[in-house]
Nucleic acid binder design. Structure first.
Ligand SMILES: [Mn+2]
Ligand SMILES: [Mn+2]
Ligand SMILES: [Zn+2]
Ligand SMILES: [Zn+2]
Lengths: 146, 146
DNA sequence: AACTTTGATGATATTGGATATCAATTGACA
DNA sequence: TGTCAATTGATATCCAATATCATCAAAGTT
């Protein structure tokens, strides 16, 4: 079992954490739903199918841990809960999100495209950038037609 | 009383809303604390000084309304509450935030610097961008030294 | 393989930011 | 000044997220 090329159990061990059935199951669910942005309750719903005894509190604790070991990203779409997705394989920089203000669909911009801008900011503000979260709001092509 | 060159009362009227003492007081507080990112509770604390009878619920309703008429922006710094700031005078595009992961200080990047990137994305994804929210995480100059 | 340690879990109570409710109030317009 | 819908303050309520705690189970240790 590995995440982004790294051994899952080893990642946990570095934090003094154990590899449990529940953590494995949550990671499975996240893998099976890549491309989606799942809330804790949604993860709970999916993970219960294969691990019915799991408690909601454990899912909350698990996503918190997964964020700490940087294998998932927490997202905020202002819908009343935090959402999560597996961190992108290569970079530690997150991809961007396009949010349609008409139909609320969320699309992804896989390219980073911020290297140049980040370099400008690092120089001008003397601030070492390690990551970013970028959301673009607007109107998607479907909603533009109609 | 005007905001970003527009008449405050007129802005409210367009939404069928009235200009009240409380709304005036909240706007005053936001103006007196420009550059800060106030939570609703913090706004409530400040506004009570000049308007002691105001209720917390009214502040919640007011920031919600102010966001709808686009005179303030809602910010999320993952600290358990929403924070607000007056929208920038000129553009309807928000400025960016630099967040130091060591001391948690939040700095501002007044320049937009995203026009080129947005044009690229609009063309490639056929998505009409009207706004963005951008956060850069990293280490500030103070924390870099020590 | 049984033992031991210590982190993890499930159930549940609790927190706290935000919203809903509702009677009383007040701003806007005539 | 009177009318009326919007607004307010107080407070109940909601609900995502966290805290608590007895029980359980990884992962070494013998
Ligand atoms: Mn995504
Ligand atoms: Mn700001
Ligand atoms: Zn759309
Ligand atoms: Zn710092």
């Amino acid at each position: 079992m590995n995440v982004n090329g790294m051994d899952f159990k080893e990642l946990l061990k570095e934090k003094g954490c154990k590899l449990t059935t529940q953590r494995r199951a949550v990671l499975d669910v996240l893998n099976e739903h890549s491309g989606e942005h799942l809330s804790t309750e949604e993860i709970y719903g999916y993970v219960k199918e294969k691990c019915p005894e799991i408690g909601l509190a454990t899912v909350y604790r698990t996503v918190q841990l997964f964020e700490e070991i940087k294998i998932i990203d927490k997202l905020n779409f202002d819908d009343g809960c935090s959402r999560y997705e597996l961190s992108s394989n290569e970079e530690d920089h997150h991809h961007h999100h396009l949010i349609c203000e008409v139909c609320n669909k969320v699309m992804e911009v896989e390219e980073d495209l911020l290297e140049g801008l980040e370099e400008q900011i690092e120089n001008k503000y003397n601030f070492k950038i390690t990551n970013h979260k970028v959301k673009f709001y607007g109107i998607c092509s479907k909603c533009m037609e109609s």
